[in-house]
Design a protein around this nucleic acid. Structure first.
Lengths: 225, 225
DNA sequence: AGATCCAATTGGTCGGACCAATTCAAGTAT
DNA sequence: ATACTTGAATTGGTCCGACCAATTGGATCT
């Protein structure tokens, strides 16, 4: 069972990306010459990697190495549940499963460096003046907790959920007020700092229940589906 | 911000797939003529859909519509955590978060038709004679519970986890003995049938803790990472 | 120094040719 | 009549050179 040429070239691009001093890759034409294959094969291989979240490709500009392995899941969820309200409810249910455990594991495992980042995100949320910054800080807080859990798969899931949530929030949906989020995040943060797994998990659960109960679109509270 | 031709053709292929009487799609050459684009564009569009888990493509044979939206996540997780033992441990942690909630929601929401399927999977596990059938029935049981929860996103995550687990199990890893799995699944099933969410979640949690504690490779019990 | 312009560069698309894998109809053997 | 084999047609995989669309960076102008 031999690999297709495209598969082989995909792997060579990954290797190249890992050893390249810049985040910029050679052009399609250069790689075609370098690997001894047609430009179409390079193109197809690069497109695979783009879809997998490993490259970003711009016409006229070239290819850039990125690390966004969560992107395919975000796309899949969008396709699976096209209705945004439904999607938000289901995302919140999944969050109610995942995030209390993230918080518990973070309380047990978090390193000082990441706790520092977490404090930074919390402070950015407290101090923010515009909605966009609020959303970014809020989601960053949650992603850092997932990262602090030490479970890479959980962190990838959280990054994807975060992207999806950000997209909905930019379409007018609202989960919780800033004040409630700040208060809830503070409790979560303090429990993690105190290495109290149960308290962290409980605080996260309450935060997400608040989010579910307060779901609004354009200042209109939504009924559950 | 206009769509690229490839993106446009991708969407047209999806529409075609949804309205086509067979699960077989027209050839690259036919779609090229039908859509008025070059064969390269059709090819690239089709490859996108293949990577997204919506098509399967075979040289000499053509394209088949499938529904495997979970595949991109499985690939991403494989890339993220290449080490299989690490991956299994992390998968089990994620399962410990997700699956008790799946079981709880299944207890609240499951319809008779899916409970019947669940019973079927349980019976297949009880009666199986070979390891491969055991694995399939075991994973099917878990995926049906996720489906019974009514949360499509949770079900997609579970399908992906299931694929990943099956892959590891085919490489020699073992999670629990068949007898333990049968006994644990029975408790989960009975709690779901009784619409007792808490009992279902507890039974699932215990089952997964057993799985974590019993992780072996080639009859050798593994230490946690 | 900052703004504008434009040619070079890079990705996107096209079409025709040829190669590799699969399918199925026709022919052969039992 | 049934089972097996063969080979041509079909379908996807790759190649090549040409041309189109978007971006970049150097040159020029203010």
């Amino acid at each position: 069972m031999s690999l297709s040429l495209v598969e082989t070239v995909s792997r060579r691009i990954i290797t190249l990306a890992r050893h390249h001093s810049s985040d910029r890759l050679p052009t399609e034409r250069d790689m075609s010459a370098k690997f001894g294959v047609s430009r179409g094969v390079v193109r197809e291989a690069a497109k695979r990697l783009e879809l997998q979240g490993l490259l970003e490709i711009r016409q006229g500009s070239g290819m850039k190495v990125v690390d966004k392995l969560h992107k395919p899941l975000s796309s899949a969820v969008n396709m699976l549940v096209p209705d945004e309200k439904q999607r938000l409810y289901q995302l919140t249910e999944v969050r109610l499963a995942l995030e209390p455990e993230n918080a518990r594991l973070a309380a047990e495992r978090a390193k000082p460096s990441i706790l520092k980042k977490l404090r930074g995100a919390h402070e950015r949320l407290m101090n923010c003046r515009d909605f966009e910054t609020q959303v970014l800080a809020d989601m960053e807080f949650h992603c850092l907790i997932a990262e602090a859990s030490g479970n890479k798969i959980g962190a990838l899931l959280m990054q994807s959920l975060s992207d999806l949530l950000q997209s909905s929030l930019s379409h007018g949906y609202r989960l919780v007020t800033k004040d409630k989020a700040v208060a809830d995040h503070y409790k979560i943060f303090m429990a993690i700092m105190a290495h109290n797994g149960n308290a962290a998990a409980d605080a996260m659960r309450k935060h997400l229940l608040n989010a579910r109960n307060d779901l609004t679109l354009k200042n209109r509270k939504l009924a559950p589906p």
